[in-house]
Design a protein around this nucleic acid. Sequence first.
DNA 1: ACCTGAACACCGTTCAAGT
DNA 2: ACCTGAACACCGTTCAAGT
Lengths: 230, 230
Amino acid sequence: MKKIVPSRSKREDSLSRDKIVEASIALLDQHGDAGLTFRALAAELQTGPGALYWHMEGKADLVIAACDALMTQILASALATPQDTPEAELHAIAAGIYDAIDQRPWLASALTQSTGGMPVIRLFEAIGQRVSALGLPDGRQWQAASTLLHYILGVSAQNAAISVFAKQLKLDRQTSLEEAASVWAALDPRDFPFSAAIAGRLATHDDRQDFVDGVDLILAGLRATGGTAR
Amino acid sequence: MKKIVPSRSKREDSLSRDKIVEASIALLDQHGDAGLTFRALAAELQTGPGALYWHMEGKADLVIAACDALMTQILASALATPQDTPEAELHAIAAGIYDAIDQRPWLASALTQSTGGMPVIRLFEAIGQRVSALGLPDGRQWQAASTLLHYILGVSAQNAAISVFAKQLKLDRQTSLEEAASVWAALDPRDFPFSAAIAGRLATHDDRQDFVDGVDLILAGLRATGGTAR
DNA sequence: ACCTGAACACCGTTCAAGT
DNA sequence: ACCTGAACACCGTTCAAGT
């Protein structure tokens, strides 16, 4: 007299925080920033929008949870292969974030929205651990970690904006960079001498390499001023 | 036989891009990010929401225009008193942005939304002009300007987030920093050794001074690696 | 305990119609 | 040329009611 336990089979496709986060990421990947709505999410999970509120506090919570899942993943895979130096590990972290945001441009605005939340703390921590391994004076460590954090998020976000712009115009990356460069070059050189002059570099430079080099620039600054902690 | 010209008196309180931008800023100052809606804006200007579309392309245009008006103003007043060195001018620019975002936290997200738009180009240009006066090799100038740009916007935005957080809890700045610090200190030190250890510094450090010092850190890095342009 | 889905209080944007 | 305001197609969130 076996008894089928309906609560079991029900649990299998019942909602859960993880399933909601997974579906959110899929929705964001498919339709970008605007693709994540409670109605679309509910439809995807074959439920009503109200059900989601049992598992999530609201939209902000949802966005942060999606970011956090990815941030954990990004950092884990960036640090999976061990590096010889803290500098090399910082390179790996920076490149990991850059590539992740390049692949999922919505991450840039999502991370911005979750300022102060767990995903950013996680990244800050990963950076900070390497910074503290550099042997800087205590007074510099906060500054070092936050400078690197903002540099990494800021440049990655800027890059994502170019990617989105490219997709909107259905251009490949190179063509859209040239497009952006020509907009800059068209600025009045009396008001925008620097931007107009440097426009050419936009189209020809290797963003990713420049980006990773920027990490070294900040590290060099730390070393150069390392003796004098304030 | 004088004739009253009705079109004149009508023009006086007719709509204009400038008036809309001015009202937008007022609305954002009063009610923050969520305060800017076409309906509220129309009510303020005693018109219908549709009328605004004669002067603005849409909400994105509106946000960028509001940012641009303030950015122009911020840069003008930051550079009003002449400085002896490009470094000092960069300090003034950085401090100007920091203070403006501290005063109007909504600027942080508004500037993020206008990535690639005129307000950010304006800031990039102002930074770039000082960077090019530093006499760095050509290959470093792009990197220098964009590193400074992202550092300035990123740290200012982070700071604004703390301000908003403080206002929500109706705490003064010091109390809320201590609040934030205690959240960090409560992180599991096995997973977050760096953040937990540095939490104390959150409440005691002088953010603004640290911020301006960070500009010097980046400049020092540029000088230290200045010989080798890639 | 967990889910449903109608309802509430909003949005940005459009557009026929006015002046 | 410029403005009006109703209408359209959405939002996030709540909550009585179900199982």
